[in-house]
Computed example of a mutant assay.
Amino acid sequence: MSRQQGSERSFVVTGGARGIGAAIAARLTQDGHVVVIDTADTLGDSARPSTELVTGDAGDPAIASSAAEQAESVAPLAGWVNNAAIFRDASLTTATAADILALIDANLRLAVTGCHTAVGHFTHRDRPGAIVNVSSHQAQRPVRGALPYATAKAAIEGLTRAVAVDHGPNGIRTNAVALGAIATARLDEYRSTHPEVDAQLAELQPLGQAGTADEVATVVAFLLSGAAAFINGAILPVDGGRSVNGPDPEAAARPR
Rank of each mutant, 00 (worst) to 15 (best):
169 P>E: 02
170 N>W: 02
170 N>T: 00
172 I>W: 00
172 I>V: 09
173 R>N: 05
173 R>I: 04
173 R>D: 03
174 T>S: 08
175 N>W: 08
176 A>H: 01
176 A>M: 00
176 A>R: 01
177 V>A: 11
177 V>F: 08
177 V>S: 11
179 L>F: 04
179 L>Q: 05
179 L>T: 06
180 G>F: 03
180 G>H: 05
180 G>Q: 05
180 G>Y: 02
181 A>N: 08
182 I>P: 01
182 I>D: 08
182 I>N: 03
182 I>W: 05
183 A>S: 12
183 A>E: 15
183 A>M: 13
183 A>L: 13
184 T>A: 11
184 T>H: 09
184 T>Q: 10
184 T>W: 09
184 T>D: 07
186 R>I: 10
186 R>P: 00
186 R>V: 10
187 L>H: 07
187 L>G: 01
187 L>R: 15
187 L>C: 03
187 L>I: 09
187 L>M: 13
188 D>F: 01
188 D>G: 04
189 E>D: 15
189 E>K: 13
189 E>R: 13
189 E>N: 12
189 E>M: 05
189 E>T: 14
190 Y>C: 07
190 Y>S: 12
190 Y>P: 11
191 R>D: 12
191 R>M: 07
191 R>A: 14
192 S>P: 12
192 S>E: 14
192 S>Y: 06
192 S>M: 02
192 S>V: 07
193 T>E: 13
194 H>K: 11
194 H>A: 12
195 P>L: 10
195 P>G: 09
196 E>Q: 14
197 V>E: 12
197 V>H: 11
197 V>W: 11
197 V>Y: 10
197 V>P: 12
199 A>C: 02
199 A>T: 11
